[in-house]
Amino acid sequence: MQQQLPGGLFYEPSPELTSETLSVLPHNKIPERAFGVLDFMVRYRPNASILTNESFFTFSFNQTNEWLDSLSEKERNELLQDARKKGRELRGKFKGRCEEIERKRLNALKEKQEAIKKKKENTFKKRKNKHLIICEKRKALVSQLRFRQNVLKQYVKDKKIFNASNNGRLLTIETLTENVKQLIEEAASKDVASSIHQRSSKMPILVNKRIRHSFNEGAFDGKVISTVPGFPDYYNIIYDCELNAESNVTDSTAIYTYRLLEDYREGKLEIIPEVVGVKPCSEFSSRLLSLAHAAQIASHCFTFSFSDK
């Protein structure tokens, strides 16, 4: 219909096209009639094959009976006999065509089912991957909360911030992330740090003290250079055995972090008294300052090294 409108291909037909279509009917009454008769025949004799209905239509609409009557008896008999002989061949071709159509339908249906199955598998795989990613994120966030609660024993005003669920329901990834961020911010705040210092005010101040730290392998002397910001129970230490006078301190010397107050309570830590009037050499002092600066940088990054001698 679009080609019949202005601008279409057949809106202004050429003289050649007009001459070619002189025999074309200007209406569609014949095909509408054919569909009506076919509808009646399908309901009237539903077991009739398509080939039978097609033969009936061509015989009726082409006026084949009138054409046969116009022929001589001999010629008419020859045509009918020839048509009977070719009937079996025609039915075989029709059967083969039906089988091919059915095969194409089955293949199309199979391809459609395969496409649906593949789409479902891809959707399931995406959901599974997304679920695994969420589980890994949740596991990492919960590990952070448990580390700060049980290992660092971080002081908080509301202990519910360490919870991974609420009323039997798991907290969302966003909520857990906000809780971890809040813990990190509170760890660096002065109020929380002062509260922790108040709890441990009865213990000796170990920063800048020389200590003798006992392990299963023996005792090691060293110096406490700083504490971890927000976590005063953790002290950064360098041991005398780690100092290397021939190389750069920051490259070859390890900085260890321990909870020295607990070791002090257990008798594994001893403070070495300072000898009045004796000063360490300038090279050793400069190395200690470099180590202290490196420890402050590492502490601000919240990187802890828990090692056993």
Rank of each mutant, 00 (worst) to 15 (best):
17 L>Y: 11
216 N>G: 02
106 L>A: 08
8 G>Y: 11
289 L>F: 13
165 S>E: 15
214 S>W: 00
122 N>F: 01
143 S>G: 04
75 E>L: 12
227 T>W: 04
157 K>F: 06
63 Q>N: 15
171 L>K: 14
40 F>H: 13
8 G>N: 05
202 K>E: 09
206 L>P: 00
33 R>V: 04
193 A>P: 00
127 R>K: 13
290 S>F: 03
198 Q>E: 15
118 K>D: 11
164 A>D: 13
196 I>D: 12
193 A>S: 10
297 I>T: 03
185 E>A: 13
198 Q>C: 06
138 R>C: 02
54 E>H: 12
176 L>C: 01
248 N>G: 10
302 F>L: 14
42 V>L: 12
211 I>C: 01
24 V>K: 09
37 V>T: 09
95 K>H: 13
246 E>C: 03
108 A>V: 10
249 V>D: 06
144 Q>G: 01
50 I>P: 01
37 V>Y: 14
110 K>Q: 10
234 Y>Q: 04
159 K>I: 06
244 N>A: 04
83 A>H: 05
266 E>G: 00
13 P>T: 11
3 Q>T: 08
259 R>K: 15
219 A>Q: 01
248 N>C: 06
197 H>P: 01
242 E>P: 08
263 D>P: 01
246 E>F: 06
15 P>N: 10
36 G>Y: 07
41 M>Y: 03
245 A>K: 14
110 K>W: 05
113 Q>N: 07
278 V>P: 03
10 F>Y: 15
168 G>L: 05
142 V>T: 05
304 F>N: 02
100 E>N: 05
115 A>M: 07
69 D>E: 11
239 Y>W: 15
173 I>K: 03
102 E>V: 14
300 H>K: 11
91 R>G: 00
85 K>V: 12
157 K>A: 05
295 A>S: 14
162 F>P: 06
206 L>V: 02
186 E>S: 11
96 G>A: 09
297 I>H: 04
56 F>Y: 13
14 S>A: 07
21 T>L: 13
214 S>V: 03
90 L>N: 09
257 T>Q: 08
184 I>K: 15
235 Y>S: 09
104 K>T: 05
94 F>P: 02
189 S>G: 11
9 L>H: 09
191 D>I: 08
5 L>K: 14
214 S>T: 02
116 I>G: 01
100 E>K: 08
181 K>R: 11
254 A>L: 12
104 K>G: 06
162 F>R: 14
257 T>I: 07
248 N>M: 03
279 K>G: 01
308 D>G: 01
295 A>F: 07
15 P>V: 04
252 S>Y: 06
36 G>E: 08
93 K>L: 13
263 D>V: 02
221 D>G: 10
157 K>H: 08
24 V>I: 08
48 A>D: 13
7 G>E: 07
80 L>C: 12
269 L>F: 06
294 A>I: 05
64 T>G: 06
140 A>Q: 03
134 I>R: 13
211 I>P: 00
150 N>R: 13
209 K>L: 02
281 C>L: 06
90 L>Q: 09
32 E>K: 13
19 S>Q: 15
46 P>R: 12
195 S>W: 01
70 S>K: 07
283 E>Q: 11
134 I>N: 09
268 K>P: 01
39 D>I: 05
263 D>E: 04
129 N>A: 07
36 G>M: 09
216 N>I: 02
176 L>A: 00
90 L>R: 07
277 G>Y: 04
196 I>P: 03
157 K>S: 08
77 N>M: 05
71 L>V: 08
170 L>S: 06
